[in-house]
């Protein structure tokens, strides 16, 4: 009853595969996030954006899943960014070192511009 509160969907915008993560990112998120990432990668995505929305709750188990994504992104020579995190979770991402491997943007617009700038 209290275990699954995340919806994940994938879309494409200006050459960026955007994975929308709406809800809680905890241990129960693993399959959904990995599936969405595999799908985007299968379609040849080079730029991956994890777009967080309404994330009141991200915990260390959720962060462990994201570290797994970073591992895959490095292996597949992709580029990863995140957007939409609250100030608090931006701080947490810096704290655990994720910020070294994924650019942190305030919102989707900024992230898409950021990808375009690095690709140019």
């Amino acid at each position: 009853m209290l275990d699954d509160e995340l919806s994940v969907s994938t879309r494409e915008r200006d050459g960026v595969a955007i994975i929308d993560l709406v809800g809680d990112v905890t241990t129960f998120a693993e399959e959904k996030i990995n599936t969405a990432y595999a799908q985007a990668t299968g379609q040849g995505a080079r730029h991956i954006l994890l777009n967080f929305r309404q994330n009141d709750y991200i915990n260390s188990a959720g962060i462990a899943i994201l570290i797994g994504i970073v591992t895959e992104v490095n292996r597949n020579n992709q580029k990863l960014a995140v957007s939409g995190l609250s100030q608090h979770f931006q701080k947490i991402f810096r704290m655990v070192g994720l910020a070294q491997y994924a650019d942190i943007y305030q919102d989707e617009e900024e992230a898409v511009r950021g990808f375009a700038a690095t690709a140019a």
Binding site: N59, I67, M95, V96, L98, Q100
Partner: peptide, 23 residues
């Protein structure tokens, strides 16, 4: 354990809870 070891698969990805709490 730092994130680098986790990314290289040299340490489990989990096990960050106490570090986060202390910070």
């Amino acid at each position: 354990v730092g994130i680098d070891l986790k990314l290289q698969g040299l340490a489990p990805r989990r096990g960050m809870g106490l570090m986060m709490i202390s910070q």
